[in-house]
Structure formats: structure tokens, C-alpha cells
């Protein structure tokens, strides 16, 4: 029995840590904006059917390209669907794709990164080679190629974006595992005859996880951006489903006649990514005080 194993944090202690985390996180006022913005979009995504009464894919009686009215708040789109409902449901698609793909990428990346650090040798070389190779193909070109192979759609998009995110997590996890493995308390554990596998998940995983959390929160914004970009180019989320990127791309020809149709999804997208990034910076500040105010 080691000291680290028998030590349990009391509930009080944990509460204090959580409170300190939130206090540092919100010490910059702007983070509150990021938090509120993100929560707003998350709630909209969760309760989409309650917020938007119209079916996002059904044609309405109002006709096409109408501007906002009491019935249709944002007006109707180019074939007469309710734009408000489409934007609200689009929140779901954009957020869900981003969150799911980052979570999957973090999970797989952490696992592979630990494998690389644990086995070393040929496994390490192979995994690093994989990272290097995929870093040499630019994200957008790789995405385009993969989408053209497997087709668009939400699940495919999430998988493809996940695939793109893995190398980053893998490298980070490998580096922090290796550096923790060299520290004295790991040496002490090993001298006591603790198995390497147990050390990996009891000590290295918990200690290396905070940069991974920071990276995930910052990746979500980037992934939402990528997804909307691909949908904007017409190769991402497939047609009947509404993603903000695809709404913008449908709306673009009407910029001259009906600017609010284009601007509303644009503003939503910008607000969501800005809030996500600000919140990510806040979480980074709280988890890693040394970096505070660096960017």
C-alpha cells in the first residue's frame, strides 16, 4: 500500500478545489460571456424541438425568401422552409459533430499515446510515423479526400474530423506520459515492484490528463469551424439535414436580395465559435495557471 493509494480526498477538500477552479476560470470577465454563450447554444441544441415549432425540413405556407415575421422569426429560405427552425436544428448538428469527434479523437489519441509511451520501440516509431504522415497532409485536403471517398453525412463527418484530431492528442499524450515516467515518484513505484500497466492508469493517466482537457476544449471550436467550412463547400453534412455551413452555402446566392438570410447563420456560427474559444481559454487558465494571459 502506498501513500498515494490510501489517500482519499474528503468531500470538503474536493468542493474547495472545484470552487477555486471556477473562481480562476471566471477571474477574467470575458470568460463569463464565453460560458453563457456556450451554455446558450448547448441549451438550444438540447431543446431544439421545444424552441422551434416548425419542422426544419417542411415547406411553409408563407412562400420562399420572406423576411422575418411573427410567424417565421427569421423568415423563410430559398424553397420556403422556416429559417428559424433550420438554424435551431442546425445548432444540434454543428455542436454534436464537433463534440463527438473531439471526444472520440481525445479517447483514441490518449490511448494510442499511452501505448506509444508504454511499449516504446517499434510501436512508438510506427505511431509517430503515422502522426508525421498525417501532419504532412493539410487538414482541408485530407478532409476533402476522405469525404469524397466515404460521402458526407453527420456520422461520416464526425469520424473524419475525429481521424484528423487523433495525431495531436497522440503526440501530446505521448510527450506528457514520457516526461511523467521519468519523475521520481514513478521510479519509487517501480522500485516497489508495481506493474507498469497499473502505473500507467493509476498515475500517468490522471497526471497527464489536464493538458488533454485543455486541448479538447480548444479543439471543439476548431472542429466546429472545420465542419461548417466543409458543409459550406458543399461536401459535408448532406442536404436535407441543416448544418449552419450548409445553410450559409444555400443562402449565398441571395446575398444581394436577402442579406439577413445569409447573415443570421453567419452570426450564429461566429458567436458559437467565439464563445467556445473564450471558454476554452478560461478552462486553460484555470487548469494551468502558469499560462494565464498568454494569448
Amino acid at each position: 500500500m502506498t501513500a498515494a493509494k490510501t489517500y482519499r480526498r474528503s468531500g470538503n477538500d474536493r468542493m474547495r478545489t472545484v470552487r477555486r477552479f471556477f473562481r480562476t476560470m471566471f477571474s477574467r470577465r470575458i470568460v463569463i460571456f464565453g460560458f453563457v454563450g456556450t451554455m446558450f447554444f448547448v441549451l438550444v441544441a438540447l431543446f431544439a424541438p421545444l424552441i422551434a415549432h416548425q419542422d426544419p425540413n417542411a415547406l411553409t405556407m408563407a412562400g420562399r425568401l420572406r423576411s422575418g415575421s411573427a410567424e417565421h422569426w427569421f423568415g423563410t429560405d430559398y424553397i420556403g422552409r422556416d429559417l428559424f427552425a433550420r438554424v435551431v436544428y442546425g445548432t444540434r448538428v454543428s455542436l454534436l459533430t464537433g463534440v463527438i469527434s473531439v471526444l472520440m479523437a481525445a479517447f483514441v489519441g490518449v490511448f494510442l499515446g499511452m501505448c506509444a509511451a508504454y511499449f516504446g520501440g517499434i510501436v512508438d516509431k510506427l505511431l509517430l510515423g503515422y502522426c508525421e504522415t498525417f501532419n504532412s497532409i493539410p487538414g482541408i485536403a485530407l478532409c476533402l479526400t476522405l469525404v469524397s471517398m466515404f460521402g458526407g453525412g453527420m456520422l461520416n463527418m464526425a469520424l473524419i474530423l475525429c481521424f484528423m484530431g487523433i495525431p495531436g492528442f497522440l503526440r501530446m499524450m505521448r510527450a506528457s506520459s514520457l516526461s511523467i515516467m521519468n519523475s521520481d515518484y514513478i521510479l519509487a513505484e517501480r522500485l516497489q515492484g508495481q506493474s507498469k500497466l497499473k502505473i500507467m492508469y493509476k498515475h500517468i493517466l490522471p497526471n497527464a490528463i489536464s493538458p488533454i482537457i485543455v486541448m479538447s476544449t480548444q479543439m471543439i471550436g476548431a472542429t466546429v469551424m472545420m465542419e461548417s467550412g466543409l458543409s459550406f463547400l458543399g461536401v459535408g453534412i448532406s442536404i436535407p439535414m441543416a448544418s449552419w455551413g450548409s445553410i450559409i452555402s444555400e443562402a449565398r446566392p441571395y446575398l444581394l436580395t436577402n442579406p439577413s438570410y445569409v447573415m443570421i447563420p453567419c452570426i450564429c456560427l461566429a458567436l458559437l465559435i467565439i464563445s467556445l474559444n473564450i471558454l476554452g481559454d478560461g478552462i486553460r487558465d484555470a487548469l494551468d495557471p502558469a499560462l494565464r494571459g498568454e494569448s
Binding site: F232, I248, R252, L255, V262, M263, C266, L269, I273, I274
Partner: peptide
């Protein structure tokens, strides 16, 4: 800089175009 870095390029482009 933070705001500009967070807005997708095509959104900026559309606004500029408009």
C-alpha cells in the same frame, strides 16, 4: 486578434463581400 481568429474565413469573406 482573438475574435478574428475565431470567425471562420468564409464568414468574414461573406461579410466583406456584403
Amino acid at each position: 486578434a482573438n475574435i478574428m481568429g475565431s470567425i471562420p474565413g468564409f464568414v468574414i469573406a461573406i461579410v466583406v463581400l456584403w
